[in-house]
């Protein structure tokens, strides 16, 4: 059986401004702002749809393939 490639959002925490634009658009509430410092992705919930990456005003979110 063919294994599906999983994707996930990855945040560059050092450049994140914690504005929360990503959290607003996430359909699965998989990304949240951690204590006003940076965005954090919940790896279990994230399906890598890319909405947050598109929205992020600082463009610090990247969708990466996850190797099993």
């Amino acid at each position: 059986m063919e294994t599906r490639i999983k994707r996930r959002a990855v945040v560059d925490g050092s450049a994140c401004v914690a504005c929360g634009c990503c959290a607003k658009v996430c359909p699965l509430s998989a990304i949240q702002i951690w204590r006003g410092v940076r965005a954090v992705v919940n790896a279990d919930k994230c399906v890598g749809c890319g909405k947050c990456a598109k929205e992020c005003p600082a463009s610090v979110i990247e969708i990466q393939e996850v190797r099993p």
Binding site: V17, A18, C19, C21, E55, P57, A58
Partner: peptide
């Protein structure tokens, strides 16, 4: 010029 909420990146209150 950039993304809608680009202001948020350099907003002094946000910083």
């Amino acid at each position: 010029l950039f993304k809608p909420r680009s202001w948020c990146v350099y907003c002094p209150m946000g910083t």
